[in-house]
Design a protein around this nucleic acid. Structure first.
Lengths: 339, 339
DNA sequence: CTGTTAGCGCATTCAC
DNA sequence: GTGAATGCGCTAACAG
């Protein structure tokens, strides 16, 4: 079927070795020979078989993208898709292909993470959507193959991570609220098995304390990043603490849930509650009112992930963390506190 | 580094072939031998090297997902992500891995579509986001490797397609409007290099004619599926034909643009204009007012694509089209025509 | 039931 | 500069 290096060699009247040499940009080839070989390659439409090449070089020029249960977090596409684009673009620029692998937490799955890596022989892996308590996490960090974690701050010799400065992001959000005069500020956080949740809580507390306000653990609600959790969060918070005049949400989706809840119970945003989200998903600017939020540089996170991965892979650099800056995007869901 | 089949054979005191046999579920192996081999495999943590296997079998157990310019259509994630999930899930169930490949229309790209296929040796390909006038399209259809196109109704011996019944979907949308008493119905379509645009136009016309209404080509605006196109479309349509009381959009994103435009110019939906979208992206239900639209079964489209792909691949079936049913989702952007 | 042999397509010594 | 071997890890005849 396909034309092999042998066919090319024969047609060009040279040895396989020579063809291999021109293929791999070796310099010690007679210019005339090189031209001839190149022409034959062109004519025959020859493409080197990367499978064979991988076998002998023990490198596949592929990076695995491991996502924890892709389909379950269907709403996670707001975040993941952009990261994926960044990963894909940068990988392609650097000559690597991306192979997807979505793990299913349900243990019944046959192939585990390491199996995947060992079988597919991917050269490196970037992981996203995993939780701290995910069984894979440890496996990955300790593996000999380089890896990059998105939003999980763990490093090892072969493991790096990329994430937004969540402490700062949360702080920016809450300080914005404080600057508007709010004093009773609630926080609808994500689940506590996400590193980002811990960081955002830290930022929330820092902002409060920086302004001389005290931190009430009771002002914090833990959800699961989904829209319903936001609605639920506002309901609980407002019920127990009617004095709350503003709420910071650990995700735009939850913030939207919160807004919907207020609206459906006859209230208005920001009149009855000032709201700040996190992520700046496309929905944020389309909402009515448009959502004030903390933007994450998702596409850049993807690019950065591949960047550090290949640096470990090709330059033998050791694992490290990369922190990207957040940005406060002012829109319409916050207003000055009116006593 | 890795433990090979040879190591296992030696440790188990059998030949390589025997190990290979138990690996590949051959039955002609002595149960006791099999057990012994299995135990050694287990102990040594052996994983067959799929690269080597691919080389000899000339099959990689991977399917390529080719997306035309992934990053450019960042707003396309609403549609693509779900399809991708479907593809990924079904592929994994059937023992295939997914490798991503995003083409860039800018010809400066080195690797073309066929290069990718020949180099990576993917067993089959599903394509999405391509246009009829895309240079790749023809290449794919005629290729010897099986392929499935999403939303491009072309078939060949090795090429199938999967799409929603767009004629029917558009018809349902417009008939809904007609049933509400609307007679002057505009249509903001997608660009005309998308097969779905042609089909939706057909459905639009059929619905009108079915109700004895005449079709005015001037009531149709062509956009590019993006939000701004929707705004622009409504602006033009209303300006030239103020009598229009309802508009059908070929995508939710455009419909949202239309709604935004009406609202920003002091109008209200559906009071001043009844609107029906297409896709049912997550935004649709979150909008204010919530968008009435035609739902596409995106996840199922992905699954179906892999399904037919592997049927061609493994059973030698010939290319065919798969049409999935649309569904009218009634929400808040339409109301009876009030003269 | 099991082992021996011969490649799959390529990169890489090592000679010439 | 170039070519003849060797082997990457595995499957698939072909014998026994």
């Amino acid at each position: 079927m396909g034309v092999t290096i042998r066919d090319v060699a024969k047609a060009a009247g040279v040895s396989i070795t020579t063809v291999s040499r021109v293929l791999n940009q070796y310099t010690d080839v007679n210019p005339k020979t090189r031209q001839k070989v190149l022409k034959v390659i062109e004519q025959m439409g020859y493409q080197p078989n990367s499978v064979a090449r991988s076998l002998v070089k023990n490198r596949t020029q592929t990076v695995g993208l491991v996502v924890s249960d892709l389909s379950k977090y269907r709403s996670g596409h707001h975040f993941m898709f952009d990261v994926l684009c960044g990963i894909n673009d940068r990988a392609q620029e650097l000559g690597y292909d991306l192979v997807l692998f979505s793990t299913t937490p349900t243990a019944q799955k046959k192939t585990t993470y390491m199996d995947f890596v060992k079988q597919r022989r991917v050269d490196g892996v970037v992981m996203m959507g995993i939780r701290l308590d995910d069984p894979y996490t440890h496996e990955v960090v300790e593996a000999s193959i380089p890896s990059v974690l998105i939003d999980v701050p763990l490093t090892s010799k072969t493991c790096s991570y990329v994430m937004t400065d969540n402490v700062k992001g949360a702080k920016m959000a809450v300080e914005h609220l404080i600057n508007l005069g709010h004093r009773q500020i609630g926080f609808v956080n994500g689940h506590d098995q996400a590193a980002v949740s811990k960081e955002r809580l830290t930022g929330y507390i820092q902002a409060l304390e920086g302004a001389g306000l005290s931190y009430h653990p009771d002002y914090v609600y833990y959800g699961n990043f989904e829209q319903e959790d936001g609605a639920q969060g506002v309901r609980c918070l407002k019920q127990r603490h009617p004095e709350i005049s503003a709420v910071f949400f650990a995700s735009d989706l939850m913030a939207i849930g919160g807004i919907k809840y207020i609206q459906s119970s006859g209230g208005q945003v920001p009149r009855d509650l000032s709201i700040v989200g996190f992520d700046d998903i496309s929905l944020a600017s389309l909402m009515q009112p448009a959502l004030t939020t903390i933007r994450q540089m998702r596409y850049e996170m993807g690019r950065a992930a591949v960047e550090t991965l290949l640096r470990m892979l090709e330059n033998g650099e050791t694992g490290r963390g990369m922190i990207l800056p957040p940005e406060l995007v002012l829109r319409e869901t916050t207003e000055p506190f009116a006593k």
